[in-house]
């Protein structure tokens, strides 16, 4: 287990999450993609902490990533509820009001 191998796994996780976030039509599935991406960031940050600078400040950064994950989830569920209430569906294709 080296920094490079952990980062490789994190890169694979990030790419899979990115695929989901781009390709999925259901809001909850898009959120799943985003979650996988943040999960990859968490793993990569943990590896950076352990292999480069095992200082307590690095662990605090991991907690911030976890907090960001929580905020994303809570706000995402609220938006999904709003979209479902107004459009009767939870598809991203039905919420393109801000599309350029």
């Amino acid at each position: 287990m080296t920094l490079q191998t952990v980062l490789l796994v994190a890169a694979a996780l990030f790419a899979v999450g990115l695929y989901g976030a781009i390709s999925q039509q259901v809001v909850v599935m898009v959120m799943m993609g985003l979650e996988v991406m943040v999960n990859a960031v968490l793993l990569a940050a943990g590896a950076m902490w352990w292999f480069l600078a095992p200082d307590p400040a690095g662990q605090v950064l991991l907690l911030v990533v976890l907090a960001a994950m929580t905020v994303e989830m809570a706000a995402g569920f609220a938006v999904a509820t709003l979209v479902h209430r107004h459009r009767g569906s939870d598809m991203t294709d039905s919420a393109t009001d801000l599309a350029g």
Partner: peptide, 11 residues
């Protein structure tokens, strides 16, 4: 669990 392997017991 991988984070546990990296000694991140709490996180």
């Amino acid at each position: 669990l991988a984070l546990l392997l990296l000694e991140q017991s709490y996180v």
